[in-house]
Amino acid sequence: MAKLVLNCTVNGEPAEVLVQPWDTLLDALRERMGLTGPKEGCGTGDCGACTVHLDGKPIASCLLLAMQARGHVVLTIEGLGRPGALHPLQDAFVRHGVPQCGFCIPGVLMAAAALLTENPHPTEEEIRYGIAGSLCRCTGYTKMLAAITETAGAAAGRRS
């Protein structure tokens, strides 16, 4: 079977990549584009480690075929911020000592970033539900909540 050409936008840049019909978006990002930030924790939508944004919305990239992203805009953790130019959430995660093993962190951050875009002033409950699709086995979520709450608060502070 011939490979297909996937055209989409990845982390702000137009991308043209050869993918297999059965490649998931996660496969294509990791294996064909070298973007290994999104992780595969389950491959079946149950853990959130593979979360990326598709047109600004968080999705489980292990459940989307790469070709279903044709013409769409994809953002991965690599596009959220870089070392030295961290996204405020990334910065807060570091300062609060959130990451332990780190495997869930790219997915949690993408879920949290999407949440704050949609709902800049979430309640604790809204944050808890907003990142509930991302399982973390190490942290117990408490420091995540603190980091996200602080970021939302800081954003609010800047606006007012």
């Binding site: 930030g37 690599e78 911020g81 070392p83 570091v94 000592g97 780190g102």
Partner: peptide, 16 residues
């Protein structure tokens, strides 16, 4: 003190 690998972990640079 936060772990020094924090920035790498929050940017998806750490290698598994």
């Amino acid at each position: 003190i936060p772990r020094p690998d924090g920035p790498e972990k929050v940017t998806g640079q750490v290698q598994y």
